[in-house]
């Protein structure tokens, strides 16, 4: 059986990749994908703990979390489409109206 730490390590690596991407990228779709990555790293943690503790609650949570991620993606992409219609670009670093 694969030790728990491997799952946690995998989860941490995926989270870090997502985080790095979130900070470094400026393309809106890429940022959304990074957010998905971070969300899923958390899901991995949930499932791993659930399996190791013989407790289904974690897995139920993950189902909710996936549904939530889908809804979030829908809204996120809808926003991005309307941004594209307005600016002909989805470069979020240029969307800096709310600044000093």
């Amino acid at each position: 059986m694969i030790p728990l730490n491997c799952y946690l390590g995998l989860s941490a690596i995926i989270f870090a990749i997502g985080l790095y991407g979130l900070i470094s990228q400026s393309n809106g779709i890429r940022i959304l994908m990074r957010v998905e990555l971070m969300l899923n790293s958390a899901n991995i943690n949930f499932v791993a703990f659930s399996s190791y503790n013989d407790d289904l609650t974690g897995q139920v949570f993950v189902l909710f979390s996936i549904a939530l991620a889908a809804a979030e993606a829908v809204i996120g992409f809808a926003i991005l489409i309307s941004i594209y219609r307005m600016h002909d670009s989805i470069d979020l670093s240029k969307l800096n109206l709310l600044r000093w």
Binding site: L19, S24, L92, L95, N96, L97, L98, R99, W100
Partner: peptide, 17 residues
């Protein structure tokens, strides 16, 4: 202090993290 409000999302994310 208003200089902190850059409007760049990535910088906000960095600050949060």
């Amino acid at each position: 202090l208003k200089k902190a409000q850059t409007g760049v999302i990535q910088q906000y994310a960095t600050a949060i993290i």
